[in-house]
Computed example of a mutant assay.
Amino acid sequence: MTISMYQASVPVFLRALNNLGNVLAAGAAHAEARKIDPLVLLGSRLYPDMFPFSRQVQIACDMVKGGAARLAAIDPPPKADTEKTFAELIERIEWTSAFLRGFEAAQIDGSEDRPIVMKTPFGELNFTGQSYLTGFVLPNLYFHSATAYNILRHSGVELSKSHFIGKP
């Protein structure tokens, strides 16, 4: 049995975003219960040269938004990085999830060998659809989602592995 590009992308992206949203909700509840300024958590980072929590969430959303769009051979819609609260970051996750739910399997299936070229500040990156999904989008999604989780966990938010992985 094989797995399609759609099955390996959009449902996986949606699950990760849902779980990330649950992590954010736990962070917001923690800040409120402990009377912590939410901006402290949103600006927290694991090390000074790393992005803060809020940017980790934005990048995770951008990865899957761009990932699905490029696999479907469309341009990803722009989304400004203006979120300053937990509620705004949760809204961004919801916006991204709605965008992903708009894809049909037929738009993404068959994209395994589709050339994908990304222009970055570090140069041009060339992929096939499959290498883009498995070697770029998914690792970045999980890296930034795990980093967001770890920032909140390090800050004392009571999170468990099930917050990150979700329930089956």
Rank of each mutant, 00 (worst) to 15 (best):
M1H: 12
M5E: 05
M5K: 01
Y6T: 00
Q7I: 00
V10I: 11
R15A: 15
N18R: 13
N18K: 14
N19R: 05
G21Y: 05
G21A: 13
N22P: 02
N22M: 11
V23T: 09
A25P: 00
G27E: 03
G27L: 05
A28G: 13
A31P: 02
R34H: 15
I36H: 06
D37R: 07
P38H: 04
L39R: 15
V40Y: 11
V40D: 12
S44N: 10
S44R: 12
S44I: 05
R45C: 10
L46R: 12
L46S: 10
L46Q: 10
Y47N: 13
D49K: 15
M50N: 10
F51E: 05
P52Q: 13
P52R: 12
F53R: 00
R55L: 14
Q56D: 06
V57S: 10
I59R: 02
D62V: 01
D62H: 06
D62L: 04
M63V: 04
M63I: 01
V64M: 04
G67C: 03
G67E: 00
G67Y: 01
A68R: 00
R70L: 07
L71D: 01
A73W: 03
P76S: 01
P77M: 01
P77V: 04
P78I: 01
A80R: 06
D81P: 02
D81F: 11
T85S: 15
T85M: 09
F86M: 09
F86V: 04
E91S: 15
R92I: 03
R92W: 09
I93F: 08
S97F: 09
S97N: 05
S97W: 09
S97H: 08
A98F: 11
G102N: 07
E104Y: 05
E104C: 07
E104T: 11
E104Q: 15
A105L: 06
Q107N: 07
D109A: 01
D113F: 10
R114I: 00
P115C: 05
P115Q: 03
P115M: 04
P115Y: 08
I116H: 00
M118I: 15
M118Q: 09
K119A: 14
T120D: 06
T120K: 07
T120R: 06
P121W: 08
P121Q: 06
F127L: 02
F127R: 00
T128F: 06
T128G: 08
G129A: 04
Q130V: 09
S131V: 09
Y132T: 02
Y132W: 10
L133T: 03
T134C: 12
V137S: 05
V137N: 02
L138F: 12
L138V: 10
L138D: 02
P139K: 11
N140R: 09
N140G: 13
Y142K: 05
Y142D: 08
Y142G: 07
H144D: 08
S145Q: 04
T147I: 11
I151L: 10
I151Y: 09
G156K: 08
L159M: 12
S160N: 10
H163Y: 15
F164Q: 03
G166T: 07
G166K: 07
